[in-house]
Each structure stands twice: as C-alpha cells, then as structure tokens.
C-alpha cells in the first residue's frame, strides 16, 4: 500500500523534493514509490519523529537507496531513542547486507550496532556467509579487522581462519593481507620473534610451491625479509636458493615464476660480483616472461647501471 493511501500515515503532509525552477543536473527517473517514500522521509525527518513507522520507512528507503548518507544516521537515532532490541536490528540487517554487497554504509551501521551491543557473538558466522558470496569483499575484510581489534580476537582462531581461506583460494590477496594483520598488527615485536618469522616464511614458501606465479605470497615473503629484525632478521640473500628453484638462471627455459626472477634480480643487484645475473633476470623478464612490464624491467636495468657507475 502506498504511504498516501495508508491510514497510518494520514496525519503526515509529504514534503516533495525541490529541484528548483530550471532543468536540474543528473535528474533520475524515480519510481513513484521512491519519490513518495522520500517525501514522507523528509516530512518525518523535518519533525524529528522517532517512531516505529519512521523506522519502517527507513527500511523502505534503504532497500531502494542504501547509499543515502543520513537515513542510516536517522535510523540509529530512532533505534536508540525507542530502545529497540539491537539483536533484532542485526536480524534485519543481515539479508540487506547480503543483497547490497557493495554498500559500505551498512558496515558502518553494523559497527555502530555491534559496538553498542558490546558483544561479537555470531559475527564471524555472518562474515562467513558474506565470504561465501564474495571472498574478497573489501568492506567485509575491513569490518573483520575492526572486529578483531575491538574485541581482542587476535588469538581466537584468527590465524587458522586465514589458513582456511587460503586453503580455499591461495590467490585470495585479502586473506594474505588479513594474515599479515593478525600476525604483525599488534605491534612490531613480532618482527623480532624468530619463531613467528620462520613460521610465516615456511607457510609462505609452502603456498608458493602450490602456485609459483601467484604474486600474493611472494609479496608477503619479500615484506618479511624487509621487516624482520634483530634475532629474526632475514637477509634477502637468504631467499636465493628458494627463488632459484622457480627461476634457474642457468636454465632459462625452466622458469616457472616471474616473481622469482624479480626477487633474484633484486638479490643479485646487492652484490657487485653478481650484477650480470641481475641483468640476466631483468632481461628475461623484459623480453620473455613479462613483456607487459618491459618498460619497468628496462628501467630497473638502467637503475642498476646507474648504481654501477657510481
């Protein structure tokens, strides 16, 4: 039933949108349903009405325009004013999130509600449902990071969760990023812990063996070498034997990974005696294995020469 025909709304004078006298920009062919709902929303917002019917109206608007930047704030104000059951709010929100996968206001709203409830129970289950639809959804991963920090869930199976996600898809870079967060997001101390760093090196190398051309674990491995420190220090050159197995410079036909070549180029450029090997790796990348980035590999070569002449 339309709002204008509903006895529940009979006392409200709808407030139509005013686009001005001339031809507006970016005018949208609104449905009558949306135009009417928005006119009633303006009317109740204008009088700051905090009511059940206004709450239902915000649901209608969100279904049609979830990016409306104040309807969510208005909804929160109503929920808190009427002291609504926030668990019911979660139940309302879940299907909305599953339909509007790209909307980010809903995750902000979810943070507000979960923060007020002060309890994360059930959240990881819901997140799993979201990941079943899109395992790389940026908003959901961002929300999970917030959840982990807000409720100190660092050691509540989070590392195992990243392992499971990577078991399902070793190329899921969002899962790799989350792993970095879980391991190193609490403070820099982890970079100096040999047990942690070696565990990560082992896990990363195992993953590379599954798919040598997958950039995610290579980026992770190189970052480990860059950041590990103190007793856990991991010199880049220590990764040379591992990289060699995927890009033997003595057998250029057997190269299995451009990322291994890239890493070898960097390792060999650190040592004047091995510069030729660095050139060779960059040459293979530019002309044979990654010609899309030929300009970049040639730039790296030129940088090497620049260093050499110093």
């Amino acid at each position: 039933m339309s709002y204008s025909a509903s006895p529940l709304w009979a006392d409200i004078v709808p407030l139509p949108q005013d686009d001005g006298p001339g031809q507006p920009l970016a005018a949208i062919a609104y449905s009558e349903k949306y135009s009417e709902a928005m006119s009633y929303l303006r009317a109740v917002m204008a009088s700051n009405e905090m009511s059940e019917r206004a709450l239902d109206l915000t649901s209608d608007i969100i279904a049609l325009n979830p990016a409306h930047y104040t309807v969510w704030l208005y909804r929160v104000r109503i929920l808190l004013t009427l002291k609504k059951d926030l668990h019911a709010e979660l139940s309302w929100m879940n299907p909305v999130a599953l339909v509007h996968l790209k909307n980010y206001q809903i995750w902000h709203h979810r943070q507000t509600i979960i923060n007020a409830l002060n309890n994360p129970d059930g959240e990881t289950d819901f997140i799993s449902k979201m990941f079943a639809k899109d395992a790389k959804n940026y908003h959901v991963w961002s929300y999970r990071q917030w959840l982990v920090k807000r409720f100190s869930l660092w050691d509540a199976g989070e590392l195992e969760f990243t392992e499971q996600m990577l078991k399902e898809d070793v190329r899921n870079n969002s899962a790799w990023n989350h792993r970095w967060y879980v391991v190193f997001g609490r403070g820099d101390e982890a970079f100096a812990d040999p047990d942690i760093v070696m565990r990560e090196v082992f896990f990363t190398q195992q993953s590379i063996r599954l798919a040598p051309q997958n950039p995610s674990p290579w980026n992770y491995l190189r970052a480990l070498a860059r950041r590990a420190s103190g007793p856990a220090a991991l010199p880049l050159s220590s990764l040379q034997p591992f990289a060699n197995t995927f890009a033997p410079l003595s057998a250029p036909d057997a190269v299995k990974s451009t990322h291994a070549l890239d890493l070898l180029a960097e390792i060999h450029s650190e040592n004047e005696a091995d510069k030729d090997k660095a050139y060779q790796a960059l040459e293979l990348l530019a002309t044979r294995y990654d010609p899309i980035r030929a300009n970049y590999w040639n730039y790296r070569r030129a940088t090497l020469e620049g260093v050499k002449t110093v």
């Binding site: 920009l25 970016a26 005018a27 949208i28 062919a29 609104y30 449905s31 949306y34 049609l64 325009n65 979830p66 990016a67 409306h68 930047y69």
Partner: peptide, 20 residues
C-alpha cells in the same frame, strides 16, 4: 532523465553531474 537504476545513486547526484 537517467534510468531508474540510478536511484541507488540518488544521494550522489552531484558526482554524476560532475561526470557529465
């Protein structure tokens, strides 16, 4: 008029105006 599907971008009409 932009097609009805742009309703979900109603709050970003200024962005759409700039693009145009």
């Amino acid at each position: 008029y932009l097609p009805n599907a742009y309703t979900s971008n109603d709050s970003n009409r200024m962005t759409l105006a700039f693009f145009t």
